[in-house]
Amino acid sequence: MNQQFKVRCFDAKTGTHPELLLLGENEASVIALAEQAGLTVTGIEAVVAQVAVVVPGSTPVHPQVMVAQVVKAPIVAQPVAPSQPAKPPSPKAPIAVPLATPVGSVAPLVIPVSKSPAPSNPVQRPVSPATKTGDISPPPKRKKHGENLFPPTGEVVINVVPMLDMTFQLLFFFIITFQAPTGLEAQIPLVLPPPEGQQEAAKDKKDKTDKDIVPTIDSDVIVEVKSLNNPQYPGEMGEVEVSALAKEIIRPTPGKSLEDGRNEVLVRLGEAMKQMAQDLKKDKLSLRLKADPGVKWERVIQVADTCRQAKFLGIRFEKPGGS
């Protein structure tokens, strides 16, 4: 009949000194068993209490338990309470390996208890009070970290690291070449007066397509931007002349500063154009915009913008007037 032995040994792999309870016919067989598992036995001692724990079908994790599998015997690594009374060895099998230290002074357990599923028969498993409330019985499905991370079950694991590298490359390329869409710019379509002598000729010829016909706007509304003619402010506009059925000259109130006077002219021009838009009652309003040669482009666009706000969307730029 198998007997239980308390074995203290040295695990060269891990550098620990586990203390085990092993089953065997005699001490020699137990030592052989331990050596088979790669453990150097430093002390052995028979335990009178009979074997207790049967762990059928448990998943072996630690070499100590692997030992149990080797002998196909219900052996389990289990903590040994320090207070457990040392029993004299059986006369049949005297101690082969002398104990390095007396059993009573064994340090508290450092046995790596296997995380195998809890035994179906939990009886008689001596548990030290310190571990009673601890995680001696972890959930059965829990896996040791690093183990079975890539289980050999045919699961394909894609290595995303090179893809990530390449994606970052692309990302930085696009970030660097990124330009915010220039939504700030807008445009004003315009037409010019037809070239001299071409207006009728273009309309007469049938073989010409639409592209060949110079688009033009015929409007009776003429807005003329006059230069301020002040050498101190080159390119500034002075008065604005609006001529439709009647001629209206909008000029700034004397004494106003340059900017105020200009703003006043633009405001009054806007009002006049809105009034004219109401009077004309047309769907498509258009005008001819004329400016003195030296007027700044910015002022011309300001006047054109004011007219566009008054729904005069078709603008034909006229040849600069003389001055």
């Binding site: 710019e185 807008a186 445009q187 004003i188 910015e298 011309v300 666009i301 054109a304 913008d305 706000q309």
Partner: peptide
């Protein structure tokens, strides 16, 4: 560029 409020968006 000169400023404008009533200009059309770029097509």
């Amino acid at each position: 560029l000169p400023d404008s409020q009533a200009a059309a968006p770029i097509e």
